[in-house]
Simulated scan of single mutants.
Amino acid sequence: MSRNLEDFRLDSPRLETPEPDSRQGRRNIVEDGVQLLDDEGAISEQFEICLKHIFARYCTPPPPRPSPSSAGQISLLAPPEGAYLTTDGLDAWAKDTNGQPFDDATKEELLEFMDVTDDGGLTLKGFMQIYQLQTENDEEETWKDLSKHGFDRSLKLVTTRREATDAEQQYAAWVDSTERHHEDGPVSSGVRSTNPTTGSS
């Protein structure tokens, strides 16, 4: 993910759509057979499933614990209704995506322009707004993000048996720590609308 949020401002003009064989912009390579955004510029169904999985790895409350398939891979996650990213979840996602957490200014811009809860937690809708705007402006950056989270160019989660076991253990530890956090005190889940014009709910 690009850390320059100027590209994510909701009032920024949409770039011209390039030719279909361009990796930059809204369209994918034709032979890939995968569209990140549809012809209207909305997040495609396949891409939405991937984003939900990525979001679910960091959200509060966490999704149900996954179970490995017969091939040793973990099923794609889906976030619970009303899930959001706490500051810790946002930092963990940014670190896994960019190698380091966002700085305070970047966080402030994200929370100002994207859909968040009353307490400032980034919602799934806000998360999708980020990726819709990024993909419109720099699709290749989005492909890099997807790759870092285990997805290939056909939007398939590519995980070896060992990676699946490690992922399950890491996820279990995350669930345990999140559950302990919730036992320490209530967390608000109210949602504040920021009048978004993009994104998927």
Rank of each mutant, 00 (worst) to 15 (best):
P61V: 02
A42K: 15
E16M: 12
D32N: 14
D91C: 13
Q132R: 06
T198N: 09
R27T: 12
G150N: 03
E45D: 12
S200M: 07
D152Q: 05
K125Q: 11
Q100S: 13
Q169N: 15
K144Y: 10
H181D: 11
E40W: 04
P64C: 02
D91E: 14
G126V: 10
T97F: 02
C50L: 04
E48V: 09
L157Y: 02
S67P: 00
W174Q: 13
L37K: 05
D145Q: 03
E19L: 13
Q129G: 12
E179I: 08
W93C: 13
L5K: 04
W93N: 01
R3H: 09
F151C: 03
F127N: 08
G120F: 02
S22L: 11
A56G: 04
D32Q: 12
R180Y: 06
A105N: 01
M1L: 15
L77E: 10
L155W: 11
Y84A: 10
P63V: 01
K95V: 02
I29H: 07
S12T: 13
H181S: 13
Y131W: 15
L10A: 10
E6N: 06
D103W: 07
M114E: 06
N98S: 11
T197A: 08
D32I: 03
A92M: 08
S67M: 11
T87L: 09
A164G: 15
T97V: 07
E109F: 06
I74H: 01
K95G: 00
E112S: 11
S70Y: 02
R65E: 12
E163V: 00
M1V: 14
S69N: 10
L110P: 07
S147K: 13
L133D: 05
W143E: 04
G120A: 04
F151Q: 05
